[in-house]
Design a protein around this nucleic acid. Structure first.
Lengths: 155, 155
DNA sequence: GTTCGTGCAAACCGTTTGCACCGAC
DNA sequence: GTCGGTGCAAACGGTTTGCACGAAC
């Protein structure tokens, strides 16, 4: 554990925001100007391999890392196609269903990732995405599971 | 619709196999030696934008395209972490649950993608992944939904 | 000293693009 | 002729790597 790695850890886990490798480098450089890109990439690889960080697919061109899997190993993502905001959610029903499907196919699941792309109806009326405010608040914090679950609404 | 595009379409939809851009180029070149990489990439962009092809996240470094979304717009993928094989499946329960979650969060879902990473228990015993044979057979063909669903097994 | 991590710059690789050419109309 | 698609090669951008330096032991 060197000083550089401490800086990068602080940059990565200092908030629960997602980030790209480049963004992490910028964050780390704010803490220590000398931090090099190479070290960031190398540390990123270590963190990913160690399971502290996970790469998520947000449908963007660049790879995005999520530092929240340590606290919430089973959370998933909803991406607002209107404003691009990402909402994290957990759902125990989903977990059970995934497990059922996996076993039916003859496997034991190790991990999974679900991305939902969606748009909010209110945006079209109000011109503003009301869920901007929800971003990463209420989602993926204690109690979030209940919030995102509750009584399923019949589709 | 030019000859080159016909060739690329044939290469892309001639089988239901997933492919990378590079692999598509190789396939297309087998049909017409002159096909250029640039045209493949440009056509790929058109097909993706037109919704005929979808990029999927198989957890690999390269982008993988799936030509099976026209026939099965809602299918998902299970990746065997032991042998790397990909199994396509459809599950109506999953679709309903996703819709519930999405509405609970205040959205209308437009599309979603689920990737399950799993290992088969039998591999460890037999040394062979029995699900190799299932690859894209039985999965994502008429009746597949029933196969992957059935009575959910309690986890 | 040895070992391991770091910083820099160059290399790498998948993808995109500028530009000249070609073919259909 | 115009317009759009194509092929080539160069450029691009994110990521990795070779190598010399530096810090910890």
């Amino acid at each position: 554990m060197t000083r550089q790695r401490e800086v990068i850890l602080q940059a990565a886990f200092g908030s629960n925001e997602h980030f790209t490798a480049e963004e992490l480098w910028e964050k780390a450089r704010k803490l220590d100007r000398r931090t090099s890109r190479a070290t960031v990439y190398r540390t990123l690889t270590l963190l990913r391999e160690g399971g502290l960080l996970r790469e998520i697919d947000l449908g963007r061109d660049q790879k995005v890392f999520d530092p929240n899997f340590m606290d919430h190993p089973h959370h998933n993502h909803l991406v607002c196609i209107d404003c691009g905001e990402v909402i994290e959610f957990e759902d125990s029903h989903m977990r059970v269903l995934e497990e059922c499907i996996t076993r039916r196919l003859g496997f034991r699941s190790t991990k999974s990732s679900l991305r939902i792309e969606a748009c909010c109806d209110r945006l079209r009326k109000d011109g503003v995405c009301p869920n901007l405010l929800r971003k990463r608040l209420g989602a993926c914090v204690p109690g979030a599971e209940t919030r995102s679950l509750g009584v399923p609404v019949a589709p």
